[in-house]
Computed example of a mutant assay.
Amino acid sequence: MEPILRLAGPADAEAIRALTREAYAKWVPVAGREPLPMQVDYEDAVRRHRFDLACLGEVLAALIETVPEGDELLIVNVAVRPAFQKRGLGVRLLRLAERLAAEAGLSGTRLYTNKLFAENIALYRSLGYAIESEEVQTIGVRVNMVKPFAPC
């Protein structure tokens, strides 16, 4: 089944929260705490950021949250419901974000993840993201990754 992509609205906030909590639950034992996306006020986030949703039938299967930041598009969150992981939905949404950034004339995309989430870092690297820096924070080490677009 091919996913239907659509923009989120305020009525989607609770479904976004539920999907995000489900998708990030596997990282709680790794990080020893709830990852930040599990703690977000999604009613507020849906008003301030763009959310693209991937639906399979009536089920919200995946999402990507983006916001312009300087001359790049920040990927704040990409989450896939566990039952739909390993089907390429997350990659498809990352490619969508890259296309949106290019169409907006931005210089690239950026994202961040926890250093303990090695599986995510490997995936992002395989898609052309490079580690720009690491930041030691009170909640762990944040890995900042960027994917600049090739000059025309």
Rank of each mutant, 00 (worst) to 15 (best):
D44L: 13
G108I: 04
H49F: 14
G88F: 05
P35C: 08
Y42G: 02
V30C: 06
T113N: 01
D41N: 12
K86P: 07
V28C: 07
R92P: 02
G57K: 06
Y124E: 10
Y42Q: 02
R47T: 10
G108H: 02
T113H: 04
C152P: 15
E98G: 13
V59E: 13
L63T: 03
K147Y: 01
N77L: 13
P37K: 01
A104Y: 11
N114D: 15
G128N: 02
G9T: 11
A130I: 12
L100R: 06
A79V: 00
E43C: 11
C55G: 06
F84V: 08
K115Q: 12
V28K: 15
R125D: 12
E14K: 12
A23Y: 02
R6K: 09
A122T: 14
R92L: 06
D71P: 09
A31D: 15
L127H: 07
V28Y: 11
G140R: 02
L7K: 15
M1N: 13
R17E: 09
K147P: 01
A83G: 08
R110P: 04
E134I: 09
L111M: 03
R110Q: 14
G70S: 09
A118F: 11
Q85A: 08
G9W: 09
D44H: 14
A150Q: 14
Q137F: 12
A97Q: 01
E22S: 15
V80M: 03
R17C: 10
F117A: 10
A150W: 14
D52R: 11
R99Q: 15
R142Y: 06
R110D: 10
A54M: 04
R48S: 08
W27L: 10
E135M: 08
I131L: 11
P35I: 00
F149Q: 01
A61T: 00
L96P: 02
L127W: 00
R50I: 07
G108R: 03
A11C: 14
R87Q: 09
A25Q: 13
R110S: 07
I4N: 14
L123H: 05
V80H: 00
D44Q: 15
S133E: 10
Q137D: 12
Y129W: 07
G140T: 00
H49W: 12
L93G: 02
D41K: 09
A102E: 07
R92G: 00
G128I: 04
L53R: 01
T66G: 04
R17P: 09
V30E: 01
P3Q: 08
V91W: 11
G128V: 06
L106R: 04
R21Q: 09
C55E: 15
L36V: 15
E69F: 12
V91P: 05
V91M: 09
L36I: 14
I131K: 05
Q85G: 10
Q137I: 14
G88M: 04
A130P: 07
K147Q: 05
K147T: 02
E134A: 13
I4G: 15
T109Q: 03
V28D: 05
G88H: 07
R33T: 03
